[in-house]
């Protein structure tokens, strides 16, 4: 799961105008750019950054939901949650492979995540506090991710677009599964319904922040749109998401935690209240409740696993040496 918002890569290029123009022509003709094709340095840099952020989001995203695997309240839900968290790891794997086609290794990207140089989606810096969060995350966070990723299926960079097609199928399954958890809770006991409302209250705002700053405040967006890395603006996707989600909350009988939310008859769309961007930037800068713990958990897995990775390499080397000696 991941949504746009934080790309922040410098899309500037210093190639000749002829080169840039020829490249833009291919983009405008909706040709897919493949790994060995010539591309502007800024295009490559933007993609590496974006795919890297996306991959890291999938990996870090395993932690908040992983927090409930051992406690899932039924065996059926436990199995579904395990499979979901596993899917997210699989998304990370395809995306690291897509980034490798641009010349960056998984090791390099992992180092950047652990050192704090590379970012991941801020939504994962919020804690999961109840079983209902497993429902709300699937419904809202995977739901928001789908809005963005459907658009990315048409991204100009071939390997990324193809990875997204595969990922989207699984994300929509996650979204339905999350919503189904919410339905069951809202049909359940008063305590279960309360749990569902509380999860919506906490996760709603961070999930609409996933689309990133308002269009006027979004750096580098324009170049990404021109290169068709990005197809829709942050606000356009956010609007689409809200329009799809509000009726779903109504069906559940839950109250949206936005007193200013209203239907705009002219636009045939919802208008939401002001987003607390101070909170958003605080979390981006590392001050969310879970920022430190998330990176610590990744660092610990990395450090604790170092001897395993070394042993696997050493064993492979020994095996090759024996094979060669035998030949």
């Amino acid at each position: 799961m991941y949504s746009q918002g934080l790309i922040g890569a410098d899309g500037s290029s210093d190639e000749t105008p002829e080169f840039l123009e020829a490249f833009q022509k291919r983009i405008d003709a909706e040709e897919k750019i493949e790994p060995n094709d010539p591309m502007p340095a800024g295009y490559r840099r933007t993609l590496v950054r974006q795919i890297g952020q996306h991959a890291h989001s999938e990996i870090v995203g395993m932690l908040p939901e992983g927090n409930f695997i051992t406690r899932a309240p039924s065996l059926k839900r436990k199995a579904a949650l395990l499979a979901k968290v596993q899917d997210e790891g699989g998304h990370g794997l395809y995306l690291y492979s897509a980034a490798e086609t641009l010349g960056v290794s998984r090791e390099q990207m992992t180092d950047e995540l652990l050192s704090g140089k590379a970012k991941y989606s801020s939504i994962f810096n919020y804690p999961t506090l109840s079983w209902a969060d497993m429902g709300a995350i699937g419904w809202l966070v995977d739901g928001a991710a789908i809005m963005n990723q459907i658009a990315l299926c048409r991204c100009s960079y071939g390997p990324y677009a193809r990875a997204m097609i595969r990922v989207c199928k699984e994300e929509s399954f996650h979204q339905r599964q999350g919503y189904e958890i919410m339905i069951e809770l809202c049909r359940g006991t008063p305590a279960q319904k309360q749990m569902a409302q509380d999860a919506l209250n906490r996760i709603w705002w961070p999930s609409i922040m996933m689309f990133g700053p308002h269009d006027g405040d979004s750096a580098h967006s324009e170049q990404s749109m021109k290169w068709k890395i990005k197809r829709f603006s942050n606000d356009a996707l956010r609007r689409k998401f809200i329009d799809a989600t509000v009726p779903q909350a109504e069906y559940l009988g839950l109250t949206m935690p936005d007193p200013d939310l209203r239907w705009d008859e002219d636009k045939q769309s919802y208008e939401h209240g002001p987003i607390d961007w101070t909170e958003f930037w605080n979390v981006v800068k590392g001050h969310g409740i879970m920022n430190v713990d998330r990176i610590k958990a990744r660092q610990k897995a990395h450090d604790d696993g170092a001897w395993v990775r070394e042993a696997a390499l050493a064993h492979a080397a020994k095996r090759n040496a024996r094979k060669e000696a035998a030949e």
């Binding site: 395993m62 992983g66 395990l82 968290v85 790891g89 690291y96 958990a297 610990k300 897995a301 990775r309």
Partner: peptide, 17 residues
């Protein structure tokens, strides 16, 4: 399942679940 998300390599984060 306690390993999920904490494995030594990503491939094992998939194999253990």
């Amino acid at each position: 399942s306690e390993w999920c998300g904490h494995a030594p390599i990503l491939e094992e984060d998939l194999a253990m679940p």
